[in-house]
């Protein structure tokens, strides 16, 4: 783990993932690799299939074709087994357990990493309290890490928006993932909150957890990511460092559209402007007798 070469270990490999809903192909033949210690961004215009692709990775959808492996084992198409394997996620629209306290939310995240079943709970078998205390301790650590420790006893529904996002990340981290999938973690945040989120994600990466992040905020994603992958209409367009992606004409075209063939040249634009200004002066003259 000391040398730089180990950081190139593949954590997540998605190959040829295709998702069809009836006649609609939402995701077409997408390959994506995330290496350990890496932050990878997934961008694309609205409706490009980013969240669908996420759902394919996390088992909420079973991809029509292709396969997803995590650390060389194929991920089963069941969300709870994916989490068990070590892939945790957050949701685009925050999905906390609103009527549980902040601490309880994180404790639920510990579910896959604890084993105490019903019998253990009913009979309070030896080890129950130990496991419970260990869970609580770990959960409080995560709340410290995300800066929510002071609000451990609040109901999660009463947290401000930005803190709900943080709590969702803390809850995901509680399952001790090797890969964290973040679906638009800064949506609706103000610039300060976005900067804080950026630092939080770097801190997560520094703990050795690879991160795959969907985001619309370009400045955020370009600052954050080691690699960016662009999804357009269900297909992967480009992948590379932020600089390469930013410079790619196809990406700009996907976001802003391409000039059509008979697009006016600069001379013509100047001509039209001159004509318009002339017209406006004549019209104002006409109006005022």
């Amino acid at each position: 783990m000391t040398s730089m070469t180990t950081t190139t270990n593949t954590v997540l490999q998605a190959s040829g993932v295709t998702m069809r809903f009836g006649g609609l192909t939402a995701v077409r033949n997408v390959d994506l690799t995330v290496n350990s210690g890496e932050i990878v961004g997934l961008i694309g215009p609205n409706g490009a299939g980013k969240t669908t692709f996420f759902n394919c990775l996390t088992g909420l959808y079973v991809p029509t074709e292709g396969k997803v492996t995590y650390k060389d084992t194929v991920l089963p198409p069941k969300p709870h087994l994916v989490t068990q394997a070590g892939v945790a996620r957050t949701f685009q629209n925050i999905r906390l357990f609103p009527n549980m306290t902040v601490l309880e939310n994180v404790l639920v995240g510990r579910h896959t990493r604890t084993k105490e079943g019903l019998w253990s709970a009913l009979l309070r078998l030896p080890g129950f309290n130990k496991a419970e205390n260990a869970s609580r301790e770990r959960a409080m650590e995560l709340l410290e890490f995300t800066g929510l420790a002071a609000k451990a006893d609040h109901l999660s529904r009463n947290l401000p928006y930005g803190e709900q996002r943080k709590l969702e990340i803390a809850r995901a981290l509680a399952s001790e993932p090797g890969l964290l999938l973040l679906d638009e973690p800064t949506a609706g945040m103000n610039p300060q909150e976005t900067r804080a989120a950026e630092e939080l994600i770097f801190a997560i990466r520094d703990q050795g957890i690879a991160v795959l992040v969907i985001e619309h905020d370009m400045r955020f994603i370009m600052n954050l990511c080691d690699r960016v992958s662009v999804l357009v209409q269900g297909e992967k367009l480009v992948e590379g460092t932020p600089d390469i992606v930013q410079a790619d004409e196809r990406v700009i075209a996907a976001y802003l559209g391409t000039p059509f063939e008979g697009a006016p040249g600069e001379e013509e634009i100047a001509e039209v402007e001159a004509a318009e200004s002339a017209q406006s002066t004549t019209s104002t003259e006409g109006d005022t007798p």
């Binding site: 996390t58 909420l60 969300p79 009527n99 995240g109 579910h111 419970e132």
Partner: peptide
């Protein structure tokens, strides 16, 4: 207990609960 929290989590949001490994 762990199982009781899982019940409440399921009650609150089943999709999120399964995504948390329940």
């Amino acid at each position: 207990s762990r199982i009781g929290r899982a019940w409440v989590a399921i009650r609150e949001d089943e999709t999120a609960a399964t995504a948390m490994g329940i």
